[in-house]
């Protein structure tokens, strides 16, 4: 048997069906979202309705996926309970999860009420105390970490890009500071944001759009990676 230059992949039935189904659905959705004028209006309306149905199904599937993700997280941490003391954090998480679910269920059932009903729900209080506070604190710490990192930027090595980054950062901050009112820093800051930064952002958006188009075309022609795995 002669050795071929490229190893042939055995065609799997599941991958073939998946590819066929994906291509068909993608094509129908595309025609529904962007109908072709040459097609009959009735066909376009049918395709549009079918595409909308598919999109609704995707939204429902997304919700189910979120629920599955929560369940998987609970299962994983439940499995970690066997390893003590490493499982302590998993125990805390599970306790919190089921505790909030329980509180919420009781609130919905009208069993758990605080005050005369005008007060905030316990779940919202827990949200405010726990999640909002913690996330806000983390966001505030980011400021100190970023400043400290910028201060130590030149300690490792002095390069042109480091200097340029630091200069842009200082210009933006000083332009935003009160001292910028007496100098040209605000104007420089506005120019910096409107010209270079805007240009880079536009390029980034264009690149993302092109990438999305490429991925969509790959799906339509059946050359996506998911069909081969």
């Amino acid at each position: 048997m002669t050795a071929s230059a490229k190893p042939r992949q055995r065609l799997r039935l599941g991958a073939a069906l998946l590819a066929a189904l994906t291509i068909a659905i993608a094509l129908i959705t595309l025609l529904g979202l962007e109908p072709v004028a040459t097609l009959p209006p009735e066909l376009n309306r049918t395709l549009s309705a079918f595409s909308q149905l598919l999109i609704q199904l995707v939204a429902v599937i997304g919700a189910i996926a979120l629920l599955l993700g929560v369940l998987n997280l609970a299962r994983f941490h439940a499995a970690q309970l066997r390893r003590f003391p490493r499982g302590l954090y998993s125990l805390l998480l599970l306790f919190t999860l089921f505790g909030v679910l329980l509180v919420r269920a009781l609130e919905r059932g009208g069993v758990l009420r605080i005050g005369d009903g005008t007060a905030a729900a316990l779940s919202l209080t827990i949200l405010d105390v726990a999640q909002v506070a913690v996330e806000s604190a983390l966001a505030g710490l980011i400021f100190f970490a970023l400043v400290y990192g910028a201060v130590r930027l030149m300690r490792q090595r002095v390069t042109l890009w480091n200097a340029l980054f630091l200069a842009a950062l200082v210009i933006v901050l000083l332009g935003f500071s009160p001292l910028g009112e007496v100098t040209l820093l605000p104007a420089l800051r506005e120019w910096l944001l409107s010209v270079p930064v805007s240009a880079g952002t536009r390029g980034l958006l264009i690149g993302v759009a092109i990438g999305i188009v490429v991925v969509g075309v790959r799906v339509l022609i059946g050359r996506d990676r998911t069909f081969r795995e």
Partner: peptide
């Protein structure tokens, strides 16, 4: 913002 810029300049 001003303090952060000043600290960056001194540290740099």
């Amino acid at each position: 913002a001003f303090a952060a810029a000043l600290a960056m300049l001194i540290g740099a």
